[in-house]
């Protein structure tokens, strides 16, 4: 704990006058604020049931489980994840999730959250891709989703603020924008086919609009309990589902295409508070 406090000091000084991420807020408080400030958003108001369930969001169960996993000594190297740097310093989780993806000196590339988590589980703890701990990416039972939910929760209510200072960060964000608007696949869809307009429905589902801050912040606020799946899902899982429906090719987990898309996603939600974890239909 003493070590943590000492580490926080130089980071705080270095950040200096940079934009404040804001205070931690309960995810339901963030949602309620969005609802009140955007009474006409069909997307935000589409499910009374989910709004009602939000204080008892089942995703919150994973927060405690994830916390235990984070501080437990695990893997062949028998160490905790406290040495993992998500961009704010080793073990510093406050506000880390909303400031990803970012460039990491130690790998020389831009990494999104899941890529960084897996990196730490392999490099620090010694897990390999064959271990279920990192191999299993989806579902409430997976270590990845428990850890994701715990770590993301530490940034709830803070504004999305992925850094763009490093040229690689800007390059990945710009490529992500191109990917978002790139028509392709068997049915000529791009992401904007569904997310380019306000208040459109695909079947019964009201779609979030990429150009409307509060809608988009909620849209990219994964991890979220997805009621229809009865599981907590990640940003990567959402991308996989969209790309599948779009009839593009089958996308793999946490590859650079995901990173670029997430860089653009999170940039489009910039300045809006994150709902972590969220609850979705």
């Amino acid at each position: 704990m003493f070590k943590k406090a000492l580490l926080a000091l130089p980071v705080a000084m270095a950040v200096g006058a940079a934009a404040q991420a804001g205070e931690w807020q309960d995810p339901n408080d963030v949602l309620q604020q969005f609802l009140q400030e955007n009474p006409d958003s069909a997307y935000l108001h589409q499910s009374e049931m989910n709004i009602m369930m939000m204080p008892d969001n089942p995703a919150l169960w994973l927060v405690d489980e994830g916390e235990e996993l984070f501080y437990a000594k695990r893997g062949p190297n028998n160490v905790s994840l406290e040495g993992c740097d998500f961009g704010k310093g080793p073990g510093e989780l406050d506000g880390a999730y909303v400031e990803l993806p970012r460039y990491f000196e130690d790998t020389g590339k831009v990494m999104d959250f899941e890529m960084r988590l897996v990196h730490c589980m392999k490099e620090l703890q010694g897990f390999t891709s064959d271990d279920a701990a990192v191999g299993q990416r989806h579902g409430n039972g997976s270590d990845i989703m428990k850890l994701t939910t715990f770590i993301a929760h530490q940034s709830s209510g803070m504004a999305w603020n992925p850094p763009l200072d490093h040229p690689q960060e800007q390059a990945m964000r710009d490529a992500g924008e191109k990917l978002f608007y790139r028509r392709g696949g068997a049915m000529d869809f791009n992401c904007a086919s569904c997310h380019g307009d306000v208040g459109k429905q695909i079947r019964a589902s009201v779609l979030p609009h990429v150009g409307t801050g509060p809608e988009w912040s909620k849209a990219v606020s994964w991890p979220a309990h997805r009621a229809g799946h009865d599981n907590v899902r990640s940003q990567n899982h959402r991308i996989r589902g969209c790309v599948w429906q779009m009839r593009h090719a089958g996308i793999k987990a946490d590859t650079p295409v995901n990173t670029a898309l997430i860089s653009y996603w999170n940039d489009q939600a910039r300045g809006e508070p994150a709902i972590l974890p969220d609850l979705k239909r």
Partner: peptide, 10 residues
């Protein structure tokens, strides 16, 4: 670690 964190921030 402190150095790395500080420099990354810059």
């Amino acid at each position: 670690n402190a150095v790395a964190a500080g420099m990354a921030a810059f």
